[in-house]
Write a protein that binds this DNA or RNA. Structure first.
Lengths: 334, 334
DNA sequence: GTGAAAGCGCTAACAT
DNA sequence: ATGTTAGCGCTTTCAC
């Protein structure tokens, strides 16, 4: 590939002049500029951002690390982050940790060694603290998305998981459900803890006694073999009439299991969950959800990150985005 | 951040020795190696891949450019590509062109200037030729995914769009449908042309006359305002009893429009489409689809790409992946 | 087994 | 308005 020296030689100027033309910096005469531009066209010159990054110490690239690229909540978030980055002249590099600590580590290593300017980080869990401290030590700005990490005080865009879960469960209670099961993500993820707390508060306020056996701890990632059979085989009075899933992927796993038992939703069992299904839900409104503004998560997170890159000394800012309770077909009255 | 010189100084060796330790290349005595490793730990050294890339002229990064990050077909493909890349010691950089020529151009520029080792490229349409020729001129290896581009002879992983569409439409005919509408992507995308050809062949073989007014040309990207009202308002004998959507996103748009008209699927109208919905469909089997092995698209595409990076002179290879017809609830018998 | 020198492609700082 | 020099952090080559 052509370098600025190739251009310089052919245009009879110095490399520095070529650099000035490329970056629109410093004074270059109209005539020289045109000549250089013409030669760049001819030789199909493309600036080497690797070399540029090495000297300027900035890449104009920010990284977005999400935990599940097949989850519409995260891909919609990615779209928001992408649009905001582009608007400000930054390029976005996606990474997908797949809810896995070790894949997350791989991506953090890549991010660090590539010297990106900042990271939008949806942590896989509390252990991500290690990775975040790594970023801090290397002085790489980051913003947490969707999930907090205990012990890390930083910029973040979070949803109100406690409130959302509480309101959704309260709504199910209003529909007449008294035995509501919870299928939760792993306890080392902040949103899972908060959604469980919201679930418990809603039950308490309705005077319903908490039944620990109706809580299933699993994982936000695609769970292939999730089964609710042990609940559905209970005696009628012990059997849950509704299940609250702590995220959308879990709701799909629950639905799969329910369907495989030959049961219908909502006739035999109601299902609600956190996070919606983006485009799918819009066309095929089925699940009752506590919906979070995914696009805004990405957009506002990117805004925080770019601010932080400009000014590293500011106080950390936390943004909490509200969620909306949408009751749809999947929850029936008892 | 620490450099190899910082390490070298502290370990009382030369930078070259540090480099040897990092890369496990050349002979370094046990003692020196241990010492260097220890200092690297202490100083939390992270290699600067930007500097390394500048000298070695390779980044060990490949790029995956998809056209819709919210489409499960492409995100599943991304997972396949990611897994295959990781297995071979490459990092993956995602890009999302959003079915837009100009966003695609931005990403191609970034890819070129970052000097990635290769590109897995799902083109936005025939005009992508310009971008691909750009890559060719700069000698960047690439593999086409899902869509061909006329005039570009290269490695590719494609689905059998013609066959899939033909079989799906034939199946709908077998269900008793005679008036089947087609909601298609843009004509400048190879899969849209082929799916239309398959649709037409199936009708011909069944002796059904083609009615041009039952073909709608739109775009694969999320179409907010797609309406099928003009068809549904036709006299009963002219009205389609089924709609074949050329991809999954279009099927959702169709469903949305159908629902807004107060019609039920499949009772009032049947819907089928190309590509399935991944995880959603698995739990909630509704759409009849011509399903493509999305994960394998990514996986095999990455394999082709890494082969190509190793050996640039080989003949171009094309892989055609079969698709599977899955009849589900959304198509009823007439 | 280890080190010194040169250079990857670019830009910042300082000439002219 | 344009050019020269130096150096970003690393590896390649060659010398010891």
């Amino acid at each position: 590939m052509a370098t600025i020296y190739d251009i310089a030689k052919k245009a009879n100027v110095s490399a520095m002049t070529v650099s000035r033309v490329i970056n629109n910096t410093g004074r270059v005469s109209e005539k020289t500029r045109d000549k250089v531009k013409q030669v760049m066209e001819e030789m199909r010159y493309i600036p080497n951002s690797v070399a540029r990054c090495l000297v300027t110490q900035e890449s104009k690239i920010v990284s977005l690390l999400i935990t599940d690229i097949t989850n519409p909540f995260f891909t919609t978030m990615a779209r928001g982050a992408e649009d905001a980055a582009m608007r400000h002249g930054y390029r976005l590099m996606f990474g997908n940790s797949d809810e896995s600590f070790s894949k997350e580590k791989d991506y953090v290593e890549m991010i660090l060694s590539m010297r990106v300017d900042g990271v939008l980080f949806a942590p896989s869990g509390d252990q991500s603290k290690e990775h975040l401290e790594w970023l801090q030590r290397q002085n790489v700005p980051f913003v947490l998305l969707d999930r907090e990490v205990p012990g890390i005080d930083c910029d973040a865009v979070l949803g109100d998981s406690l409130d959302g879960a509480k309101r959704m469960v309260a709504e199910m209670i209003r529909y007449g459900h008294r035995r509501i099961a919870l299928v939760n993500g792993a306890q080392d993820v902040s949103t899972a803890r908060e959604r469980q707390a919201g679930y418990i508060e809603a039950l308490q306020e309705a005077g319903i006694e908490l039944d620990e056996s109706l809580i299933m701890q699993t994982s936000y990632s695609r769970v292939q073999d999730l089964s609710v059979a042990h609940w559905m085989e209970l005696a009628p009075e012990a059997r849950p009439t509704a299940i609250f899933a702590a995220n959308n992927m879990l709701a799909l796993s629950v639905l799969k299991s329910v369907r495989s038992l030959g049961l219908r939703v909502p006739d035999d069992l109601s299902i609600a969950c956190f996070d919606d299904f983006g485009w799918v839900e819009e066309a095929n409104p089925f699940f009752s959800v506590a919906s979070q503004p995914a696009y805004e998560f990405g957009e506002q997170g990117m805004q925080l990150l770019l601010d932080r890159i400009k000014n590293r000394e500011e106080q950390p800012r936390q943004i909490m985005l509200p969620c909306e309770i949408l009751m749809r077909e999947s929850v029936g009255k008892v």
